[in-house]
Amino acid sequence: MGFKLLSKLLVYLTASIMAIASPLAFSVDSSGEYPTVSEIPVGEVRLYQIADGVWSHIATQSFDGAVYPSNGLIVRDGDELLLIDTAWGAKNTAALLAEIEKQIGLPVTRAVSTHFHDDRVGGVDVLRAAGVATYASPSTRRLAEVEGNEIPTHSLEGLSSSGDAVRFGPVELFYPGAAHSTDNLIVYVPSASVLYGGCAIYELSRTSAGNVADADLAEWPTSIERIQQHYPEAQFVIPGHGLPGGLDLLKHTTNVVKAHTNRSVVE
């Protein structure tokens, strides 16, 4: 069995187990497998329904001669939608809004960016022009300005110390501490036991640490421990890039980060 097929099978099995364990909360999309990078042309966006009122959005972007996937989250909030992270750029984010209108038909009224990198804030200006209120932590807003990236308009308070959590509509926002970046936030959907790890969490097929220019490698494993301790009931975990899975993604990420750190020390 090929690795790609095995990865998709694991996603399907995880979703099936969740649907059985929580039949009222989960209505997993039966329309197909989780979209992969090879299936999404740059400039297009796919939506994948995880649970009743919960979707991931998947886009792709060219970077350094390669094409990478990027995940975000959409959560229903009454007759409105909360968006977590842009679709990595203005063109993708405009396509995301169009796809949401086509498939869901509810307005996106608020959006949260989970850290300051372009795959999370690139497209904020498109959201703002569409009347979406954009939010991020003060740290993310400051770092985005320093980096020359787009800056969300509103500040999220109460997320300055490791372990801080605040309720934001249908989700809980959690600051686990520094990891992929010093400002990275985690998003949890309690009604569906869905954990969105953003770039602080890796997919299972990833074996290298990737972009760690703004990471705190020493603190990252401790931050992941905080996530595990705060959300032990999480059933569906979405990484910032690639295929979702279960809580095993947290341990896998820790292993990859520690291996990278150990290699760096040896070198």
Rank of each mutant, 00 (worst) to 15 (best):
P35C: 06
R263D: 15
A200W: 04
Y12S: 10
K91Y: 09
R76Y: 04
W220R: 04
V124Y: 04
I201Q: 00
P35S: 08
P190N: 06
T93I: 03
K102C: 06
A209G: 07
R142E: 14
F168C: 05
V112R: 03
T254R: 15
D248M: 08
T182M: 14
I100C: 00
S38G: 11
L185T: 03
Y135K: 01
S155Y: 08
I20C: 09
N92D: 02
S155L: 11
P244W: 07
G105C: 05
G53R: 09
R206P: 07
Q235P: 05
L159C: 03
V187F: 00
I151R: 06
S30W: 08
I84K: 00
L83P: 00
D85S: 00
I20E: 15
G43H: 08
S27T: 12
W220Y: 09
A15R: 13
V189K: 00
R128F: 09
A94W: 11
F26H: 12
P35Q: 08
D52C: 06
G89C: 00
A21W: 11
G148I: 02
S191I: 09
L159V: 10
I224E: 03
I238S: 03
V187P: 04
L217D: 04
Y12F: 10
L250T: 03
Y188A: 01
P170D: 03
A213F: 10
V187W: 01
I20Q: 11
I84A: 01
G53D: 14
H252W: 05
A234W: 03
S139Q: 13
V237L: 05
S62A: 10
A200V: 07
L73M: 14
I17L: 12
A111P: 02
I186R: 01
D164T: 11
E145L: 14
V54I: 07
L5Y: 15
G43V: 03
D216L: 08
G242E: 04
N262E: 13
N211I: 09
I238C: 02
V266S: 14
Y202W: 07
L10Q: 15
C199T: 04
F63E: 10
V187S: 03
V257C: 05
S30P: 12
T222Y: 13
A66P: 07
T222G: 12
R167K: 12
P232F: 09
L5V: 15
E147K: 15
R167G: 11
H154T: 10
Y175P: 01
S191Y: 13
R263L: 13
E225F: 11
L127M: 02
S162E: 14
Y34L: 09
H154R: 09
V257P: 01
T254K: 14
Q228A: 12
R206L: 15
A94E: 15
R46S: 08
V28R: 09
T140V: 03
R167H: 11
I17R: 12
Y12A: 13
V67C: 06
D79M: 11
V67F: 15
R128H: 13
K102W: 09
N92S: 08
G105L: 06
G72N: 04
H180M: 00
D216K: 08
L249I: 06
